[in-house]
Design a protein around this nucleic acid. Structure first.
Lengths: 192, 192
DNA sequence: TCCACATGTCTACAGTCGTATACTTCGCTC
DNA sequence: GAGCGAAGTATACGACTGTAGACATGTGGA
C-alpha cells in the first residue's frame, strides 16, 4: 500500500495545486516552503518544481485558479450592496475559515514578485469582470475603491484580528458596509 | 575616521530604530534581515540584538514609534472627510514614497507574530485615538471601517499597484473617497 | 596614566530555504 | 514478460537566516 496512490500525473498535479491554494492562502508566499506544500499533497518536494517550474510558478497558478472560480460578486443589482455586505461580514466571521482570494492577496502582497503576479491577475480577472458589470467610465474607479474596502475589511478582521471589528454587533457593521456599497455600486443611480 | 562616529549608545540605538522603520515599512518583517538593517544603520548586526533583544523586539518598537507620531487624522470636523480623502490620495500617489504605518502594517501582517504585535498596537494607539474623537458607541465601528478603507486603498494603490486606481483621475477618486468618509465620520450627523 | 566597563565587532552554529542532479520505481506497450 | 519512458524520490549544495559566545576597542573616571 504505502500511499495507495496509483501514478497519475494529472491527479498529482491537482493535489499539489490544491495544497498550494490552501498553504499560500493561510500563510502567504513567504510564509510557507515547498517542502511543506509537498507534504500536504502527499508527495516529494521536487515534484513542485517538476510540475510548476518553481515555487513562483506554482504561486502564479494558485493565484490564477483562486481568482477565477470566485463565488463572490454578482447577483441582482437591486440588492447588490446588501448582498455583498452580508457575504463579506459572514465570510470574515471569526469562526469561519475561508480560502478567500483576498486572504491570498493580503498575505502574499509583501513579496514584490508575488505582488507583481497578483497585480497582473487582478487586472486580468477581477477588474475585467467588473468592467462587464459596470462598463461606464465612472464605474471603474468606484469598483476599484469597493475592492479596496473589501480587502481592507478582510485584513483588519481576519489577518490582524481587530477587536473593534470583532467585538461589535455584526448587524451594525453590515449596515455600515451596505451604505458604503450603495454609494459605490452603480445600481441606485447615485449622483456625485 | 573610518565611520567617524563617537560611541554613543542612545544615538546608535536611534539609528538602528530609524533604519528599522524604513526597512520594515519598505520590505515587511519577513522581507528584510537584521544584517541589512544593521548595515543601513552603519553598525554590526549583533547590535540589533543587544539594543532590542531580537528582530521581533526591534519590530515591536518600530511599530510603536510608527503608530505614535502619526500626522494623519485630525483637523476640523467640518472638512474632515475631504481632508482625509485628499491626504490619502496625495500620499498614495505613485511618485510619493512614504513611510506610512499603513504600509508597515500591510507588508508585515502576513507573519503571525508581527500580526499580533500590529494588532496590539492598533488597539492601543489608533483605536484609542479614535475613541477620543468619537466617544459614542456607534462611532467606534464606523471608524474601524474607515480604517479598513484606508488600509485597502493603500494596499491596492501602493503595494499591489492596481492600474484601475493609478490610471484614473485623482480628483475623481478623491471625490468618491470623500463621499465614503462623509458617511463614516461622525461630523455631518449622518443618520442611518 | 591606567583601569574598568560600556560599546561594538567577528566568528560560528544550527537551521531553513529553493532547487539542481542523480537515482529509483512504477505502468504501459510491444 | 521485457524494456522503455514517465512518475516520483533521495541527496546534496550554496545561500541565507537569527542569534549566541568570544573577542576587540574606545572612553570616562580614578
Amino acid at each position: 500500500m504505502s500511499s495507495a496512490h496509483r501514478r497519475d500525473a494529472a491527479t498529482t498535479r491537482a493535489a499539489i495545486l490544491r495544497a498550494g491554494v490552501e498553504a499560500f492562502t493561510r500563510f502567504g508566499f513567504d510564509g510557507v516552503g515547498v517542502r511543506e506544500i509537498a507534504q500536504a499533497a502527499g508527495v516529494s518536494a521536487m515534484l513542485v518544481n517538476r510540475y510548476f517550474g518553481s515555487k513562483e510558478g506554482l504561486f502564479a497558478e494558485v493565484v490564477e485558479v483562486s481568482m477565477t472560480d470566485r463565488t463572490v460578486l454578482g447577483g441582482d443589482p437591486a440588492t447588490l450592496a446588501r448582498d455583498i455586505a452580508a457575504t463579506l461580514v459572514r465570510r470574515t466571521s471569526p469562526a469561519a475559515d475561508d480560502l478567500s482570494p483576498f486572504l491570498l492577496m493580503l498575505r502574499s502582497a509583501a513579496n514584490p514578485r508575488a505582488a507583481e503576479i497578483l497585480r497582473e491577475n487582478i487586472e486580468r480577472h477581477v477588474e475585467a469582470h467588473v468592467h462587464e458589470v459596470a462598463p461606464d467610465t465612472r464605474g471603474t474607479d468606484r469598483a476599484a475603491v469597493a475592492l479596496a474596502l473589501i480587502a481592507g475589511f478582510w485584513l483588519l478582521r481576519k489577518v490582524i484580528g481587530s477587536s473593534a471589528l470583532n467585538e461589535t454587533d455584526e448587524k451594525t457593521v453590515e449596515a455600515t458596509l451596505t451604505r458604503l456599497f450603495e454609494v459605490l455600486l452603480p445600481g441606485p443611480a447615485s449622483r456625485g
